[in-house]
Simulated scan of single mutants.
Amino acid sequence: MHRSWWRFFLAAALLASTIVRASADDGAIIDRWYSALLVADRTELSELLADNVRLNLDDIGVVQTKRDFIASIDEWQGAVAGAVIRHRIEKSENGETTVLACYDFPSNDTLMRETFTVAGGRIAASTQTAVAQDCSAY
């Protein structure tokens, strides 16, 4: 094999492994997010969010800052008591990870599509949109 082709192949392989590793790291951060969200772990959630994060709740027209979100945890803690949150990654590309999440509360469930941007090991942005009023499509 010609040397320049070999260098190109090696560079492409290194880039691919970096992208796969970044996607895996993003997936681990998102797994931690849902685990902390389920138990309303204010400390863990705060650590996972970038200081300048914007959390866009499309369906209710609200954009929360980190401070807004952390301030809402007491209310969320009551809502999430007895719930189950299931999630799966639909795709991860160009620094964005899209997740399908079933929020199964004791009295109802809802299916959400959530998109996360992870940078520097923290969630830098998130957009949440309702998909269905139940999780039958999960």
Rank of each mutant, 00 (worst) to 15 (best):
H2M: 13
W5F: 15
F8W: 14
L10A: 15
A11R: 13
A11V: 04
A12F: 03
A12T: 03
A13T: 03
A13I: 05
A13W: 11
L15H: 02
L15Q: 06
T18Y: 12
V20L: 12
R21F: 09
R21D: 03
R21G: 14
A22Q: 01
A22I: 07
A24K: 06
A24R: 10
A28P: 04
I29M: 14
I30F: 04
I30Y: 12
D31C: 10
D31V: 01
W33Q: 09
W33M: 09
W33T: 07
L37E: 05
D41A: 04
D41V: 08
T43S: 15
E44A: 06
E44D: 08
L48Q: 00
L49K: 01
N52G: 06
V53E: 04
L55Q: 05
L55S: 05
N56A: 10
L57Y: 09
L57T: 07
D58H: 07
D59P: 02
D59H: 06
I60F: 07
I60H: 05
I60L: 13
G61S: 02
G61A: 01
V63R: 09
Q64K: 02
Q64A: 01
Q64E: 06
T65H: 00
K66E: 09
R67C: 03
R67V: 12
D68L: 00
F69Y: 12
I70R: 11
A71T: 08
I73S: 04
E75Q: 15
W76T: 00
Q77S: 10
G78L: 02
A79E: 13
A79R: 10
A79F: 12
V80L: 07
G82I: 10
A83N: 11
H87M: 05
I89G: 02
I89M: 06
I89F: 14
K91N: 15
S92N: 11
S92H: 03
E93Q: 13
E96K: 14
E96F: 13
T97Y: 06
V99K: 00
L100A: 09
L100E: 07
L100I: 10
L100Q: 10
A101L: 12
A101P: 05
A101I: 05
C102Q: 06
Y103K: 11
Y103S: 12
Y103H: 07
F105G: 03
S107D: 15
N108W: 14
N108C: 03
D109I: 00
M112V: 09
E114A: 08
T115P: 03
F116M: 00
T117G: 04
A119H: 15
I123N: 02
A124N: 10
A125Q: 14
T127K: 12
T127H: 00
T129R: 08
T129L: 13
A130S: 09
S136Y: 07
S136Q: 13
A137E: 15
A137D: 15
Y138K: 00
